[in-house]
Simulated scan of single mutants.
Amino acid sequence: MERLPSWLRQHLAALRAVAVLTVLLGLAYPLVTTGVAQVLFNEHANGSIVQAGGKDVGSALIGQSFTDADGNPVRTYFQSRPSAAGDGYDPTSSGASNLGPEDVVDVLAAPGTEGKESLLTRVCARSKAIGELEGVSGARPYCTPDGVGAVLKVFPGRAVSVNQACPAVPFVAAYQGLPVECARPGEDYAAGRTVPVRGDVRAVPVPADAVTASGSGLDPHISVAYAELQAPRVARERGLPPDRVRELIGAHTTGRALGFIGEPAVNVLDLNLALDRP
């Protein structure tokens, strides 16, 4: 029998290899790993779904917002941290804002154009809103009292509070002898020297995780400090003793991984479900 040409033998060998690997890695391996996961880690393998009243209400691994139809916090619930995943906690759009600590200058909306908030102004606005919700000071370094980034653009002979659109009153009247102006939307301040102003803020009651999103945008946890900040409001709105709310926080606080990695955290969904139980 005549031997097949070498090029044809090579192609047939490649096809056999593809077929074998497809069966092993595309069929057998996924089926085995799925079967093992279902037997040993059934709850986790199926998404760690949380149920209440016989209905699926979320996942223990993915956060969610506790807001009304207008996006306002529901005052009877603990609030989650911000999320940059889609419209918030969207698993199909997991990710961060990708804004860093140098993102401090807003693009003010001018007629016919859209504005853009800097990361600093987002943090300032969130801190101000949380302070008002929880009845504490929302002030923090580098933030103006009206909740935007306290940043100047300095030019020869003038300075501009670049995140405060006119007719706002600038957060400082003068800087190093220069009068400070409000910013006019549409005007180009790129040539100015950027000067963030720290201000005299000694205590910051609103914790960092209350005003910044996680890297994935899906983190279901908040810090113990943020939970404790919200406890008086939740207790008051529900007519519960404050000690009872603090007990529930403690019961739904997870410790550090392996005893030393990370910080203790509170699962917001689990905590809110515990509050709803009779």
Rank of each mutant, 00 (worst) to 15 (best):
G149W: 02
T253L: 07
S137A: 04
L40E: 13
Y77K: 13
G157E: 02
G131L: 02
P91G: 05
R9C: 12
G95Y: 03
K55Y: 11
L4Y: 11
G95N: 11
P241D: 07
L40S: 12
P278V: 04
A210Y: 04
G177A: 05
A173P: 15
P111H: 02
V197R: 12
I222C: 09
H221S: 08
L31S: 09
A235K: 06
Q79I: 05
D106H: 04
D56P: 12
G71C: 06
A69V: 06
P179F: 07
T144E: 00
R3H: 13
A96Y: 08
R233G: 06
G192Q: 00
R75S: 13
G199E: 02
Q230S: 01
R158G: 10
A159F: 03
T22M: 05
V104I: 07
G138A: 02
L273D: 08
C143D: 10
E247S: 09
L15A: 08
G54Q: 05
G199K: 04
P91H: 11
L152C: 13
S214T: 02
V151E: 01
T22V: 04
R277M: 09
A17K: 04
A37K: 03
I62A: 01
S48M: 06
Q10S: 14
L119H: 05
R244C: 09
Q10D: 14
T194G: 12
Q176E: 05
R122P: 12
A13Y: 10
D68R: 04
L133F: 08
V136H: 00
T253Y: 11
L40R: 15
V224P: 09
V136K: 04
A159I: 09
A274T: 07
A13T: 11
E114Q: 12
A251Q: 15
G217P: 04
L24F: 00
R9Y: 10
R158E: 13
V154K: 07
V201M: 03
V18F: 10
F41R: 12
P156Q: 12
P82F: 00
L25T: 10
R236D: 11
A227F: 01
Y226G: 13
S97L: 04
D209H: 07
R246Y: 09
A139H: 09
R184H: 14
S214L: 06
N267K: 09
V197P: 11
G217K: 01
L258W: 14
